[in-house]
Design a protein around this nucleic acid. Structure first.
Lengths: 222, 222
DNA sequence: ACAAAAGTGTTGAGAGTACACCCATGC
DNA sequence: GCATGGGTGTACTCTCAACACTTTTGT
């Protein structure tokens, strides 16, 4: 490290790519910017890191301000540090990835934002800054994590059916899986605990399962 | 993002975990700090990010200052942003991972460092700041990358033998592989081009290979 | 001839993939 | 009785792991 002292002309933000599943599609939360060079343009929600909070706490705070939810799955994605990525000055941003169970959140627009909305990842609008690149990273990471860890379960309620689980995998990977093979694979991993069967549906009531491990644990799922 | 303007009391550094293989062991470059609260303590080399350079360029610059090599494999690892990780003030650091071919570098101590030395990863000294945690991340990432990408080849000369390749895998994973199975697996991936066989050794001369793909490309190696 | 690493194939076990029919419920 | 998603087993293929002996060179 240099001894010339600290560099004071540089700001740090966090941006949070918030994924959820709604209407059978993978959606991401975007906000419409109310100010500045990108007024009216959609962007990944985020904000400045305060001096008294860690990066991760800044991300949690922004996430809660935006969605009202706590205790969701949150992981650091990547830090983007090109000199000219923000036209207003030197801003480095650490991007986070959040996975939210769609039942548990409601949108809120914070002060510097005029609107917040869920977009299907297959129909994204033009994005501010280098947010298109960040989104690309987030999608790659999301698939990777679904394939090799238990993060998918963070998008389901505590008790879920095999069909729901398979459904979110099909959405994220944009393809169908064979029901029998999928269930066999999942069961062979010993992740699931069987719960009671009761469910009010107009067809054969499915078994309910719950996750036996921590969310985010490394397990080769597919 | 907030509209309240920029936060100016926060510094950003890069730290680079530089791995190489020497004497049949996985080694990492550490520097002995010459100043400050951690004077005399070993640390991961790094330095402040300048206003005019991207994060990645800062990492490249520090790497070259430390080792004299350019064009090595370099990837961003993680950004550490706890409030109290540096006792001198609020410093966020983005850690990078570098893999260096051991033939191609020479150590240099920069101005704020009294000594630079390669340590075996199995015999690390006490480290400054949160550098132990950073090292843990780096080692995990290194193994992951060896298993699923072609980064290993960045630690070999352009032309190498199957034995050399297997050797670095054995060092990184601290275990032995079966020669026949290893070669079969590698060959089945179609990564290698055969080169001329000549080599002056006091035993049966091995075939030489070169890599047919880009370094860092995703391929399930093991 | 000896030391040192290179080179080479087969077999068995387990995992992944493809594939089709009946079941339980609400309306 | 019909619509809806739930639940179940087998056969084939492919990949992974275990395993030992001969070859080429320099000294």
């Amino acid at each position: 490290m240099s001894s010339q002292g600290y560099n004071n002309s540089l700001s740090v933000t966090v941006d949070i790519v918030i994924f959820t599943i709604r209407e059978g599609e993978l959606k991401v939360l975007l906000v419409k910017r109310a100010l500045d060079p990108f007024k009216g343009v959609w962007a990944i929600p985020g904000g400045f890191v305060r001096n008294s909070e860690s990066l991760e706490n800044a991300a949690k705070r922004e996430l809660e301000e935006e969605t009202g939810v706590k205790n969701v799955y949150l992981e650091q994605l990547y830090t983007f540090g090109d000199v000219k990525r923000d036209p207003r000055g030197r801003v480095i941003t650490t991007a986070y990835l959040a996975l939210v169970n769609s039942d548990s959140f409601s949108l809120r627009a914070s002060t510097d934002v005029s609107e917040a909305k869920l977009f299907s990842v297959s129909e994204l609008p033009k994005l501010a800054f280098d947010h298109r690149e960040i989104m690309g990273y987030a999608l790659k990471r999301l698939k990777w994590k679904f394939e090799y860890t238990t993060v998918a379960f963070s998008m389901l309620p505590k008790e879920f059916t095999m069909g729901q689980l398979q459904g979110i995998y099909e959405v994220v990977f944009s393809r169908e899986f064979d029901k029998r093979n999928f269930a066999k694979k999942i069961r062979s991993l010993g992740l699931l605990k069987e719960e009671k069967v009761k469910r009010e549906v107009s067809y054969r009531p499915p078994k309910l399962y719950s996750l036996n491990k921590k969310i985010g644990e490394i397990v080769e799922i597919l």
